[in-house]
Design a protein around this nucleic acid. Structure first.
Length: 177
DNA sequence: GGAGTGATGACA
DNA sequence: GTCATCACTCCA
């Protein structure tokens, strides 16, 4: 299966977040071995008005990558311990990203980066093979009814308007290969 | 329920 | 320079 093209990520953030469910996150290790993990949970962070998004504070050294074109990794450290893996989405100058929150068999955004050995080394790199971290399409098409929409996790600071938005997508069952 | 952990952004 | 905060996880 070929890697998803960068154009896949330049579409609207919510569409990318939903379409990533069922796709496979692919990691090439230092020893050359390749692992594939199905994406089961994502969250969208959409535009500078989204108070849950880092980009709502404006363009800073950290968020600069979010203002670039879609198709690049945005990786940052939270609580001094956990790396969060995001992919920048949308066109250049529109700040948005999708957080990859869960993989099949690995739930939790901090746990998945630890399991795959992802850190700031991947930050700002393209979502392609040359970064040793890329995404391939789904084995089987995921029916729309299999994807659950919910509110995002851990963003109460953003206020009720943004907390209530159903920007989180979860695969209902992992019976699909 | 509560601790651990350090980069980040706001302010001086 | 200081300080509070944080898109989390683990243990009790």
């Amino acid at each position: 299966m070929k890697p998803l093209p960068l154009s896949f990520f330049k579409r609207p953030t919510l569409a990318v977040a939903k379409d990533l469910i069922g796709c496979r996150l692919v990691r090439r290790r230092g020893d050359g071995t390749i692992e594939r993990h199905m994406i089961t949970e994502t969250e969208a962070y959409d535009g500078h008005d989204d108070l849950a998004s880092h980009a709502s504070k404006g363009r800073t050294p950290r968020t600069d990558i979010m203002f670039g074109p879609g198709g690049y990794w945005y990786v940052y450290l939270i609580y001094g311990m956990y790396w969060m893996l995001n992919v920048v989405t949308g066109p250049k100058d529109y700040p948005a990203a999708v957080l990859i929150r869960g993989l099949e068999g690995i739930s939790g955004p901090g746990r998945l980066t630890k399991a795959l050995g992802i850190s700031h080394a991947q930050n700002k790199k393209p979502v392609s093979k040359k970064s040793d971290l890329w995404i391939e399409g789904p084995m089987k098409k995921i029916p729309p009814g299999m994807i659950e929409k919910t509110a995002r996790i851990g963003i109460d600071y953003a206020g009720p308007l943004w907390t209530e938005k159903e920007y989180r997508f979860v695969l209902k069952s992992s019976k699909l290969g």
